[in-house]
Amino acid sequence: MSAQAHPESINVKLHLWRQAGPEDPGSFEKVELKDISTHMSFLEMIDVANEQILEGGGVAVCFDHDCREGICGMCSMVINGQVHGPEPGVTTCQLHMRSFADGDEIYVEPFRASGFPIVRDLVVDRSALDKIVMAGGYISVNTGSPQDANSMLVPKDKADLAMDAAACIGCGACVAACPNAAAMLFTGAKVSQLALLPQGQPERASRVLGMVDTMDSLGFGNCTNEYECMAACPKEIDVSNIARMNREYLRSSIGSAEGV
């Protein structure tokens, strides 16, 4: 934030998505909040809203959250049509109320994708992403004593790219922001972080084939290269990871003996 002056507190009109269960049609519940500190995070503001709902005899809105410091990837809200809200490169927990103005109407919805069924209110089931990782997003290393660190050389540029891909916290913002609800930025990052490193080479072909086939089976859409995912990603994962996944998939399926 710049030195631009913000009011210490604001009033907002919150519209929270309420949905009793996966099959419930759901609707918005309006909550008017007074004197919300602009230093609050968005989740703290939801906490205040929940207290107000409870005091009024209502049922608190369910939402996912955990670390509240931008590293766990649990918070999952679409705020005024934008995943993780209007600020680039942050999760909802790192979004502050100073990003909003006095009197703002704020619509809060869950991530919407057939691959992420709604559990209740703002909580969605993102275990599909775990299934993609379980299909090969790891290296099989038997335990033993660590080898000398210098015995396996990693070029600096490759290490940097792998580290950038590994910054993915698996929050699913890419899926939620994608016009097609595709999971290709997530899968691309998980394929890339290992494909770039020497440790990832032994299972390089089987990994990408397994992960992409699993991704395809879970009801996600197909990437149309609109790059909304990259713009919404709190870790700003680059779409070159999707291109790398495409490359890896084609070289593994057509250019290798894997899956013959």
Binding site: N80, G81, E109, R112, P179, E226, Y227, E228, A231, A232
Partner: peptide, 11 residues
């Protein structure tokens, strides 16, 4: 779909 939808700037 989303009730409120706003692009992040990729499209």
């Amino acid at each position: 779909g989303y009730m409120v939808s706003k692009a992040h700037g990729g499209r």
